[in-house]
Design a protein around this nucleic acid. Sequence first.
DNA 1: CGGATTCTGTTGATATCTCAACAAATCAGC
DNA 2: GCTGATTTGTTGAGATATCAACAGAATCCG
Lengths: 182, 182
Amino acid sequence: MAKLDRRILKTQESLKAAVIELMAEKSFDGITIQDIADRANVNRGTIYLHYQDKFDLLDKLIEAHLHELGAMDEWACELDWNDALVPYFEYFEKNYLFFSTMLASTGVPSSFRSRLLASFMKGFKGEIDRESGKNTDLDEDIILQYAGTAYVGIIEWWIRNEMPYPPQAMAKQIGTLLERTL
Amino acid sequence: MAKLDRRILKTQESLKAAVIELMAEKSFDGITIQDIADRANVNRGTIYLHYQDKFDLLDKLIEAHLHELGAMDEWACELDWNDALVPYFEYFEKNYLFFSTMLASTGVPSSFRSRLLASFMKGFKGEIDRESGKNTDLDEDIILQYAGTAYVGIIEWWIRNEMPYPPQAMAKQIGTLLERTL
DNA sequence: CGGATTCTGTTGATATCTCAACAAATCAGC
DNA sequence: GCTGATTTGTTGAGATATCAACAGAATCCG
Protein backbone atom coordinates (compact mmCIF):
# COMPACT_ATOMS: atom_id res chain seq x y z
CA MET A 1 0.00 0.00 0.00
CA ALA A 2 1.57 3.22 -1.11
CA LYS A 3 1.21 5.69 1.71
CA LEU A 4 -1.29 8.23 0.56
CA ASP A 5 -1.30 11.90 1.28
CA ARG A 6 -3.49 12.72 4.20
CA ARG A 7 -5.53 15.14 2.11
CA ILE A 8 -6.41 12.46 -0.39
CA LEU A 9 -7.68 10.16 2.30
CA LYS A 10 -9.71 12.88 3.93
CA THR A 11 -11.37 14.02 0.72
CA GLN A 12 -12.16 10.53 -0.40
CA GLU A 13 -13.54 9.67 3.00
CA SER A 14 -15.80 12.72 3.00
CA LEU A 15 -16.95 11.98 -0.52
CA LYS A 16 -17.78 8.38 0.23
CA ALA A 17 -19.60 9.28 3.40
CA ALA A 18 -21.48 11.97 1.53
CA VAL A 19 -22.67 9.56 -1.13
CA ILE A 20 -23.88 7.08 1.46
CA GLU A 21 -25.74 9.76 3.35
CA LEU A 22 -27.35 11.13 0.24
CA MET A 23 -28.35 7.71 -1.00
CA ALA A 24 -30.09 7.12 2.30
CA GLU A 25 -32.15 10.21 1.56
CA LYS A 26 -32.93 10.00 -2.13
CA SER A 27 -32.50 7.94 -5.23
CA PHE A 28 -29.05 7.75 -6.76
CA ASP A 29 -30.37 9.22 -10.00
CA GLY A 30 -31.48 12.34 -8.21
CA ILE A 31 -28.11 12.97 -6.63
CA THR A 32 -25.99 15.57 -8.37
CA ILE A 33 -22.27 16.07 -8.24
CA GLN A 34 -22.89 19.40 -6.59
CA ASP A 35 -24.96 17.67 -3.89
CA ILE A 36 -22.08 15.38 -3.12
CA ALA A 37 -19.58 18.23 -3.09
CA ASP A 38 -21.77 20.26 -0.74
CA ARG A 39 -22.37 17.41 1.65
CA ALA A 40 -18.71 16.47 1.69
CA ASN A 41 -17.75 20.11 2.06
CA VAL A 42 -15.45 19.90 -0.88
CA ASN A 43 -15.12 21.91 -4.05
CA ARG A 44 -17.02 20.39 -6.94
CA GLY A 45 -13.92 20.30 -9.10
CA THR A 46 -12.06 18.27 -6.50
CA ILE A 47 -14.32 15.32 -7.12
CA TYR A 48 -12.98 15.05 -10.65
CA LEU A 49 -9.45 14.79 -9.30
CA HIS A 50 -10.41 11.45 -7.83
CA TYR A 51 -13.32 10.03 -9.77
CA GLN A 52 -14.70 10.05 -13.28
CA ASP A 53 -18.26 10.74 -12.20
CA LYS A 54 -20.70 9.76 -9.52
CA PHE A 55 -20.96 6.22 -10.88
CA ASP A 56 -17.25 5.77 -10.59
CA LEU A 57 -17.39 7.10 -7.06
CA LEU A 58 -20.12 4.67 -6.09
CA ASP A 59 -18.25 1.85 -7.75
CA LYS A 60 -15.01 2.58 -5.95
CA LEU A 61 -16.92 2.87 -2.71
CA ILE A 62 -18.40 -0.58 -3.16
CA GLU A 63 -15.10 -1.97 -4.34
CA ALA A 64 -13.37 -0.69 -1.22
CA HIS A 65 -15.83 -2.46 1.05
CA LEU A 66 -15.59 -5.70 -0.88
CA HIS A 67 -11.83 -5.45 -0.72
CA GLU A 68 -11.98 -4.88 3.00
CA LEU A 69 -14.17 -7.92 3.41
CA GLY A 70 -11.78 -9.90 1.24
CA ALA A 71 -8.88 -8.90 3.44
CA MET A 72 -10.74 -10.14 6.47
CA ASP A 73 -11.16 -13.52 4.81
CA GLU A 74 -7.47 -14.25 4.82
CA TRP A 75 -7.07 -13.00 8.29
CA ALA A 76 -10.03 -14.84 9.78
CA CYS A 77 -9.86 -18.21 8.07
CA GLU A 78 -7.45 -19.47 10.69
CA LEU A 79 -9.88 -18.94 13.52
CA ASP A 80 -12.44 -21.30 14.91
CA TRP A 81 -15.89 -21.02 13.35
CA ASN A 82 -17.18 -19.64 16.60
CA ASP A 83 -15.00 -16.56 16.48
CA ALA A 84 -14.33 -16.23 12.78
CA LEU A 85 -17.48 -14.34 11.94
CA VAL A 86 -17.38 -11.82 14.76
CA PRO A 87 -15.23 -9.29 12.86
CA TYR A 88 -17.59 -9.52 9.90
CA PHE A 89 -20.70 -8.71 11.84
CA GLU A 90 -18.89 -5.97 13.66
CA TYR A 91 -17.93 -4.61 10.27
CA PHE A 92 -21.52 -4.75 9.06
CA GLU A 93 -22.63 -3.00 12.22
CA LYS A 94 -20.00 -0.30 11.91
CA ASN A 95 -20.92 0.34 8.30
CA TYR A 96 -24.58 -0.01 8.95
CA LEU A 97 -25.63 2.94 6.84
CA PHE A 98 -23.68 1.71 3.86
CA PHE A 99 -25.06 -1.80 3.87
CA SER A 100 -28.59 -0.79 4.64
CA THR A 101 -28.51 1.75 1.85
CA MET A 102 -26.94 -0.54 -0.68
CA LEU A 103 -29.32 -3.35 0.05
CA ALA A 104 -32.37 -1.13 0.07
CA SER A 105 -31.78 1.90 -2.10
CA THR A 106 -33.45 2.24 -5.44
CA GLY A 107 -31.59 3.30 -8.53
CA VAL A 108 -28.36 1.62 -7.50
CA PRO A 109 -26.57 0.55 -10.63
CA SER A 110 -24.51 -2.61 -10.79
CA SER A 111 -26.34 -4.78 -8.30
CA PHE A 112 -24.47 -4.66 -5.06
CA ARG A 113 -26.17 -7.79 -3.83
CA SER A 114 -24.74 -9.99 -6.53
CA ARG A 115 -21.24 -8.62 -6.07
CA LEU A 116 -21.48 -9.28 -2.37
CA LEU A 117 -22.68 -12.80 -3.04
CA ALA A 118 -19.81 -13.49 -5.40
CA SER A 119 -17.35 -12.21 -2.84
CA PHE A 120 -18.72 -14.47 -0.11
CA MET A 121 -18.79 -17.51 -2.34
CA LYS A 122 -15.19 -16.96 -3.22
CA GLY A 123 -14.36 -16.73 0.45
CA PHE A 124 -16.18 -19.98 1.26
CA LYS A 125 -14.37 -21.87 -1.46
CA GLY A 126 -11.43 -22.82 0.72
CA GLU A 127 -13.60 -23.69 3.68
CA ILE A 128 -15.50 -26.65 2.32
CA ASP A 129 -14.93 -29.83 4.27
CA ARG A 130 -13.00 -32.26 2.07
CA GLU A 131 -11.90 -34.66 4.74
CA SER A 132 -14.83 -36.00 6.71
CA GLY A 133 -16.50 -37.24 3.57
CA LYS A 134 -19.80 -35.62 4.38
CA ASN A 135 -19.66 -33.69 1.10
CA THR A 136 -18.55 -36.40 -1.28
CA ASP A 137 -21.94 -36.53 -2.96
CA LEU A 138 -22.30 -32.77 -3.27
CA ASP A 139 -21.12 -30.45 -6.04
CA GLU A 140 -19.02 -27.47 -5.03
CA ASP A 141 -21.20 -25.11 -7.08
CA ILE A 142 -24.23 -26.12 -5.14
CA ILE A 143 -22.67 -25.87 -1.72
CA LEU A 144 -21.25 -22.44 -2.48
CA GLN A 145 -24.47 -21.09 -3.90
CA TYR A 146 -26.43 -22.46 -0.99
CA ALA A 147 -24.14 -21.07 1.68
CA GLY A 148 -23.62 -17.80 -0.14
CA THR A 149 -27.27 -16.94 -0.58
CA ALA A 150 -27.97 -17.99 2.97
CA TYR A 151 -25.25 -15.71 4.24
CA VAL A 152 -26.27 -12.72 2.14
CA GLY A 153 -29.87 -13.35 3.07
CA ILE A 154 -29.26 -13.43 6.77
CA ILE A 155 -27.19 -10.26 6.60
CA GLU A 156 -29.90 -8.52 4.62
CA TRP A 157 -32.45 -9.56 7.21
CA TRP A 158 -30.26 -8.48 10.09
CA ILE A 159 -29.60 -5.06 8.60
CA ARG A 160 -33.16 -4.43 7.46
CA ASN A 161 -34.50 -5.29 10.89
CA GLU A 162 -32.14 -2.87 12.57
CA MET A 163 -29.75 -5.47 13.92
CA PRO A 164 -32.03 -7.14 16.49
CA TYR A 165 -29.16 -9.24 17.87
CA PRO A 166 -25.64 -8.12 18.76
CA PRO A 167 -22.83 -9.01 16.34
CA GLN A 168 -21.44 -11.66 18.66
CA ALA A 169 -24.74 -13.53 18.85
CA MET A 170 -25.12 -13.40 15.09
CA ALA A 171 -21.56 -14.54 14.52
CA LYS A 172 -21.94 -17.52 16.80
CA GLN A 173 -25.18 -18.79 15.34
CA ILE A 174 -24.31 -18.18 11.71
CA GLY A 175 -20.95 -19.78 12.40
CA THR A 176 -22.69 -22.93 13.58
CA LEU A 177 -24.99 -23.00 10.57
CA LEU A 178 -22.23 -22.37 8.07
CA GLU A 179 -20.08 -25.06 9.58
CA ARG A 180 -22.89 -27.54 9.10
CA THR A 181 -23.32 -26.44 5.50
CA LEU A 182 -19.74 -26.37 4.33
CA MET B 1 -16.41 38.84 7.30
CA ALA B 2 -13.94 38.02 4.60
CA LYS B 3 -14.96 34.77 3.01
CA LEU B 4 -12.44 32.22 4.11
CA ASP B 5 -11.03 29.38 2.10
CA ARG B 6 -12.86 26.17 2.78
CA ARG B 7 -9.63 24.46 3.79
CA ILE B 8 -8.95 27.02 6.50
CA LEU B 9 -12.37 26.54 8.02
CA LYS B 10 -12.08 22.78 7.95
CA THR B 11 -8.65 22.73 9.51
CA GLN B 12 -9.57 25.15 12.26
CA GLU B 13 -12.76 23.28 12.98
CA SER B 14 -10.91 19.99 13.32
CA LEU B 15 -8.29 21.56 15.53
CA LYS B 16 -10.82 23.16 17.84
CA ALA B 17 -12.85 19.99 18.09
CA ALA B 18 -9.67 18.05 18.76
CA VAL B 19 -8.66 20.31 21.63
CA ILE B 20 -12.08 20.04 23.23
CA GLU B 21 -12.09 16.28 22.94
CA LEU B 22 -8.61 15.97 24.37
CA MET B 23 -9.35 18.31 27.23
CA ALA B 24 -12.29 16.14 28.13
CA GLU B 25 -9.84 13.27 28.47
CA LYS B 26 -6.80 14.77 30.14
CA SER B 27 -5.34 17.91 31.60
CA PHE B 28 -4.44 20.69 29.23
CA ASP B 29 -0.82 20.55 30.39
CA GLY B 30 -0.56 16.96 29.28
CA ILE B 31 -1.80 17.66 25.79
CA THR B 32 0.90 17.94 23.18
CA ILE B 33 0.79 19.61 19.81
CA GLN B 34 1.27 16.22 18.25
CA ASP B 35 -1.77 14.92 20.14
CA ILE B 36 -3.88 17.68 18.72
CA ALA B 37 -2.54 17.14 15.22
CA ASP B 38 -3.23 13.42 15.42
CA ARG B 39 -6.73 13.85 16.76
CA ALA B 40 -7.57 16.47 14.17
CA ASN B 41 -5.95 14.39 11.45
CA VAL B 42 -3.78 17.27 10.40
CA ASN B 43 -0.07 17.64 9.92
CA ARG B 44 1.65 19.03 12.97
CA GLY B 45 3.17 21.85 10.99
CA THR B 46 -0.25 22.95 9.80
CA ILE B 47 -1.16 24.00 13.33
CA TYR B 48 1.53 26.65 13.23
CA LEU B 49 0.00 28.13 10.09
CA HIS B 50 -2.98 29.13 12.20
CA TYR B 51 -1.90 29.39 15.82
CA GLN B 52 1.16 30.32 17.82
CA ASP B 53 0.91 27.36 20.13
CA LYS B 54 -1.68 25.35 22.00
CA PHE B 55 -2.42 28.24 24.32
CA ASP B 56 -3.19 30.48 21.41
CA LEU B 57 -5.42 27.78 19.97
CA LEU B 58 -7.34 27.42 23.20
CA ASP B 59 -7.60 31.16 23.51
CA LYS B 60 -8.97 31.62 20.01
CA LEU B 61 -11.39 28.79 20.64
CA ILE B 62 -12.75 30.49 23.73
CA GLU B 63 -12.77 33.84 22.00
CA ALA B 64 -14.82 32.44 19.16
CA HIS B 65 -17.48 31.17 21.52
CA LEU B 66 -17.63 34.41 23.45
CA HIS B 67 -17.90 36.28 20.18
CA GLU B 68 -20.73 34.02 19.10
CA LEU B 69 -22.54 34.64 22.37
CA GLY B 70 -21.95 38.34 21.95
CA ALA B 71 -23.49 38.25 18.51
CA MET B 72 -26.56 36.59 19.94
CA ASP B 73 -26.91 39.42 22.42
CA GLU B 74 -27.59 41.99 19.77
CA TRP B 75 -29.90 39.72 17.94
CA ALA B 76 -31.89 38.58 20.98
CA CYS B 77 -32.25 41.76 22.98
CA GLU B 78 -35.30 42.72 21.00
CA LEU B 79 -37.23 39.65 22.05
CA ASP B 80 -39.45 39.13 25.05
CA TRP B 81 -37.69 37.73 28.10
CA ASN B 82 -39.62 34.52 27.64
CA ASP B 83 -38.06 33.75 24.30
CA ALA B 84 -34.83 35.67 24.46
CA LEU B 85 -32.86 33.00 26.29
CA VAL B 86 -33.89 30.03 24.22
CA PRO B 87 -31.12 30.41 21.63
CA TYR B 88 -28.58 30.67 24.40
CA PHE B 89 -29.52 27.44 26.08
CA GLU B 90 -29.73 25.74 22.73
CA TYR B 91 -26.23 26.98 22.08
CA PHE B 92 -25.01 25.64 25.41
CA GLU B 93 -26.63 22.33 24.65
CA LYS B 94 -25.17 22.14 21.16
CA ASN B 95 -21.69 22.92 22.50
CA TYR B 96 -22.14 20.78 25.54
CA LEU B 97 -18.71 19.23 25.42
CA PHE B 98 -17.02 22.58 25.17
CA PHE B 99 -18.79 24.16 28.10
CA SER B 100 -18.63 21.13 30.30
CA THR B 101 -14.93 20.81 29.62
CA MET B 102 -14.15 24.47 30.12
CA LEU B 103 -16.08 24.67 33.35
CA ALA B 104 -14.66 21.46 34.73
CA SER B 105 -11.24 20.84 33.26
CA THR B 106 -8.12 21.33 35.31
CA GLY B 107 -5.09 23.12 34.01
CA VAL B 108 -7.12 25.54 31.93
CA PRO B 109 -5.20 28.77 31.77
CA SER B 110 -6.94 32.12 31.76
CA SER B 111 -10.04 31.26 33.71
CA PHE B 112 -12.83 30.69 31.27
CA ARG B 113 -15.41 31.24 33.97
CA SER B 114 -14.42 34.81 34.60
CA ARG B 115 -14.35 35.65 30.91
CA LEU B 116 -17.80 34.20 30.54
CA LEU B 117 -19.01 36.20 33.50
CA ALA B 118 -17.60 39.42 32.09
CA SER B 119 -19.27 38.72 28.78
CA PHE B 120 -22.66 38.17 30.38
CA MET B 121 -22.39 41.24 32.57
CA LYS B 122 -21.64 43.32 29.53
CA GLY B 123 -24.68 41.89 27.83
CA PHE B 124 -26.92 42.65 30.79
CA LYS B 125 -25.79 46.23 30.96
CA GLY B 126 -28.37 47.51 28.50
CA GLU B 127 -31.15 45.45 30.00
CA ILE B 128 -31.42 47.00 33.43
CA ASP B 129 -34.79 48.54 34.12
CA ARG B 130 -34.37 52.30 34.37
CA GLU B 131 -37.98 53.30 34.03
CA SER B 132 -40.12 51.58 36.63
CA GLY B 133 -38.02 52.95 39.43
CA LYS B 134 -37.57 49.58 41.08
CA ASN B 135 -33.78 49.94 40.79
CA THR B 136 -33.32 53.53 41.88
CA ASP B 137 -31.72 52.51 45.14
CA LEU B 138 -29.42 49.92 43.57
CA ASP B 139 -25.95 50.37 42.09
CA GLU B 140 -25.38 49.06 38.60
CA ASP B 141 -22.22 47.21 39.65
CA ILE B 142 -24.16 45.27 42.19
CA ILE B 143 -27.04 44.34 39.93
CA LEU B 144 -24.70 43.21 37.18
CA GLN B 145 -22.52 41.16 39.48
CA TYR B 146 -25.58 39.59 41.07
CA ALA B 147 -27.27 38.67 37.80
CA GLY B 148 -24.03 37.64 36.15
CA THR B 149 -22.91 35.21 38.81
CA ALA B 150 -26.41 33.82 39.03
CA TYR B 151 -26.50 33.21 35.30
CA VAL B 152 -23.06 31.63 35.13
CA GLY B 153 -23.88 29.58 38.18
CA ILE B 154 -27.09 28.20 36.79
CA ILE B 155 -25.42 27.32 33.50
CA GLU B 156 -22.63 25.58 35.33
CA TRP B 157 -25.17 23.61 37.32
CA TRP B 158 -27.19 22.74 34.25
CA ILE B 159 -24.17 21.53 32.33
CA ARG B 160 -22.58 19.64 35.21
CA ASN B 161 -25.83 17.82 35.89
CA GLU B 162 -26.13 16.70 32.30
CA MET B 163 -28.84 19.18 31.35
CA PRO B 164 -31.71 17.79 33.43
CA TYR B 165 -34.22 20.16 31.80
CA PRO B 166 -34.64 20.97 28.12
CA PRO B 167 -33.29 24.31 26.86
CA GLN B 168 -36.78 25.77 26.51
CA ALA B 169 -37.68 25.08 30.13
CA MET B 170 -34.40 26.57 31.31
CA ALA B 171 -34.80 29.61 29.12
CA LYS B 172 -38.28 30.32 30.38
CA GLN B 173 -37.48 30.05 34.09
CA ILE B 174 -34.17 31.85 33.94
CA GLY B 175 -35.86 34.49 31.83
CA THR B 176 -38.39 35.07 34.58
CA LEU B 177 -35.73 35.25 37.27
CA LEU B 178 -33.47 37.58 35.29
CA GLU B 179 -36.35 39.89 34.54
CA ARG B 180 -37.05 40.18 38.25
CA THR B 181 -33.40 40.91 38.93
CA LEU B 182 -32.62 43.46 36.26
C1' DC C 1 24.41 15.61 37.05
C1' DG C 2 24.37 13.69 32.01
C1' DG C 3 22.52 11.15 28.27
C1' DA C 4 18.57 9.93 25.96
C1' DT C 5 14.19 10.89 24.51
C1' DT C 6 10.48 13.59 23.40
C1' DC C 7 8.57 17.91 22.07
C1' DT C 8 8.77 22.25 19.67
C1' DG C 9 8.88 25.56 16.13
C1' DT C 10 10.58 26.44 11.49
C1' DT C 11 11.94 25.59 6.77
C1' DG C 12 11.60 24.43 1.63
C1' DA C 13 9.92 21.69 -1.89
C1' DT C 14 5.93 19.58 -3.44
C1' DA C 15 1.11 17.89 -3.69
C1' DT C 16 -3.43 18.79 -3.29
C1' DC C 17 -7.42 21.68 -3.01
C1' DT C 18 -9.89 25.89 -3.98
C1' DC C 19 -12.11 29.12 -6.66
C1' DA C 20 -13.99 31.36 -10.59
C1' DA C 21 -14.81 30.97 -15.18
C1' DC C 22 -15.95 28.58 -19.30
C1' DA C 23 -18.28 25.76 -23.03
C1' DA C 24 -20.75 21.72 -23.85
C1' DA C 25 -24.33 18.68 -22.45
C1' DT C 26 -28.59 17.76 -20.29
C1' DC C 27 -33.04 18.81 -18.63
C1' DA C 28 -37.77 21.28 -18.04
C1' DG C 29 -41.55 23.41 -19.61
C1' DC C 30 -43.91 25.56 -23.22
C1' DG D 1 -39.15 21.76 -31.72
C1' DC D 2 -37.13 25.91 -28.99
C1' DT D 3 -35.51 28.62 -24.74
C1' DG D 4 -33.81 29.13 -20.45
C1' DA D 5 -31.94 26.96 -16.54
C1' DT D 6 -29.23 23.52 -14.51
C1' DT D 7 -25.62 20.33 -14.58
C1' DT D 8 -21.32 18.72 -16.18
C1' DG D 9 -16.51 18.33 -17.00
C1' DT D 10 -12.29 21.09 -17.67
C1' DT D 11 -8.99 24.70 -17.13
C1' DG D 12 -5.40 27.85 -14.91
C1' DA D 13 -3.80 30.63 -11.30
C1' DG D 14 -3.39 30.89 -6.68
C1' DA D 15 -3.82 29.34 -1.76
C1' DT D 16 -3.28 25.98 1.64
C1' DA D 17 -1.69 21.61 3.55
C1' DT D 18 1.60 17.96 3.50
C1' DC D 19 5.84 15.83 4.42
C1' DA D 20 10.48 15.19 5.85
C1' DA D 21 14.11 17.19 7.95
C1' DC D 22 16.37 20.10 11.16
C1' DA D 23 18.16 22.35 15.47
C1' DG D 24 17.07 23.93 19.83
C1' DA D 25 14.21 23.38 24.19
C1' DA D 26 12.22 20.78 27.56
C1' DT D 27 11.59 16.57 30.01
C1' DC D 28 12.61 12.06 31.76
C1' DC D 29 15.37 8.73 34.05
C1' DG D 30 19.18 6.28 35.82
